[in-house]
């Protein structure tokens, strides 16, 4: 590939209007948020809810699972903060195949 889009590095070709960070649409934020919410719900269940110790063999499973989920959630959100994704606006068109019926692509502004 002649063009590399290193996700960790901010754009070197800044004159391209297209570069922007993924922001809210960074899958790590989604994972962090969902697991975090699950963690908080389970923590609350572990502290206030029915612990069903007969089922779990005497372990407060909701509590421990809740703690683990909150930790994992913090990891993902922290990771997304420290290394935000830069979305490349332009990718090489895959139009160099002579055997392929030509898709008439709109110019993506290279």
């Amino acid at each position: 590939m002649s063009e590399k889009h290193d996700l960790d590095a901010p754009g070197t070709d800044g004159e391209q209007e297209g570069r922007h960070t993924a922001g809210a649409f960074d899958i790590r934020n989604f994972i962090g948020a969902l697991l975090g919410l699950y963690g908080l719900i389970l923590l609350a269940m572990g502290i206030f809810g029915d612990q069903s110790l007969d089922k779990t063999g005497g372990v407060n499973a909701n509590l421990y699972a809740g703690i683990a989920l909150v930790v994992v959630s913090a990891f993902f959100i922290g990771w997304a903060r420290i290394k935000p994704i830069v979305v490349p606006e332009h990718v090489e068109p895959a139009g160099d195949d002579p055997t392929r019926p030509a898709p008439k692509r709109r110019s993506t502004g290279h």
Binding site: G49, D50, S52, K55, A61
Partner: peptide, 11 residues
């Protein structure tokens, strides 16, 4: 059914 408390069951 046999080992998960409600909460983890939902997950």
């Amino acid at each position: 059914r046999d080992v998960l408390p409600n909460g983890l069951l939902g997950v």
